[in-house]
Computed example of a mutant assay.
Amino acid sequence: MEIDILFDDPAWEATALEPLAGAAFRASFAALDLPADRFIISVLACDDARIAMLNGEFRGKDTPTNVLSWPAEDRAPDRAGDMPHLPAPAAQDPPIELGDIALALGVITREAAEAEKSFDHHLSHLLVHGLLHLLGFDHIHDADAALMEGLETRILARLGIADPY
């Protein structure tokens, strides 16, 4: 697995983003029975102002958010509540670029404090959440949300993190 991290906000360098991303992504791929070494993920570690700009540009919401994801390919299921069309990389093929995830340090820090959660646990949850979006999972419809949240809970349990819901 290749994880390309761009530290847009130098304050991120004081966090454990790199090892947490590796652990969260490996646990996610294992839960889905996907070979982690066949994928590339890009992560933008930014501040609240940058993510607010991106949120405004791509979602029409001019406010900061904790995580944004841009899948390289639409893998959405045909019906709400069904599994997305997960990639099936062959060993001889080059790794598949799944897309980009952006994370906002200030929002994540505030949310963790408000929920009385560990920053690392909350960040791990958002890394899993972002990766699942890249793989075609969503939470717009109740059936999709139940599938995605259930999977997140199982993945986080593999990491020793309590159910965030």
Rank of each mutant, 00 (worst) to 15 (best):
R38H: 04
A102V: 05
E13V: 09
A36G: 09
D4N: 12
I161M: 00
P35T: 11
L103E: 03
T109G: 03
F25W: 07
E57S: 15
D163T: 07
I96K: 04
N55S: 11
L34Q: 06
P10G: 02
Q92V: 15
R26H: 13
L6K: 11
A72H: 08
I161Y: 02
D120C: 05
W12C: 00
R110D: 13
L6F: 12
P77V: 08
A36P: 06
N66P: 14
D62A: 15
G136S: 02
A162T: 12
P71N: 04
I41A: 04
D93A: 09
L151Q: 06
G22F: 09
L127E: 01
D48A: 10
L151E: 05
H129P: 00
A21F: 04
R50E: 08
R158Q: 13
I51C: 00
A143Y: 10
R59E: 14
T15K: 00
L68Q: 04
N66V: 15
D82R: 07
D37I: 11
E18C: 10
P164T: 07
D120K: 06
P64D: 10
D74L: 10
A143T: 11
A14T: 12
A115F: 14
I108S: 02
P84M: 02
D142F: 14
S118M: 09
D37L: 11
E111Y: 14
G106E: 11
H129S: 02
D138K: 08
A162V: 12
R59W: 14
A145R: 11
A31Q: 08
D8G: 07
P94L: 07
G60Y: 11
L135W: 01
D144E: 05
H121S: 11
E111P: 11
K61W: 14
L17T: 04
A76Q: 09
F29K: 07
H139Q: 08
I5W: 01
L103S: 04
P19K: 02
E73D: 12
P71S: 03
H141C: 10
F58Q: 14
I96Q: 06
D9P: 00
R79G: 13
L131Q: 04
W70D: 06
L98Q: 01
G60K: 04
R158S: 13
I108D: 00
A145L: 10
F7C: 00
F119C: 01
S42P: 03
I155A: 03
D142I: 15
V67W: 07
I101S: 00
L34P: 02
A52D: 01
I96D: 03
E114N: 09
D138F: 09
L135N: 01
D8E: 08
A52V: 08
G99H: 03
S42N: 12
A88Q: 14
G99Y: 01
A31H: 07
P95R: 12
L103Y: 03
L20P: 00
L132P: 00
D142T: 15
W70Y: 10
Y165W: 15
A145Y: 07
L131T: 09
D48W: 03
L68H: 05
T109A: 07
E97K: 13
I101Q: 00
I161F: 01
R158D: 12
H133S: 03
D37G: 12
A23M: 07
D120P: 05
A36C: 08
H133D: 04
W70C: 05
M148Y: 12
T109M: 04
R26I: 15
A23F: 09
I101G: 00
E2Y: 10
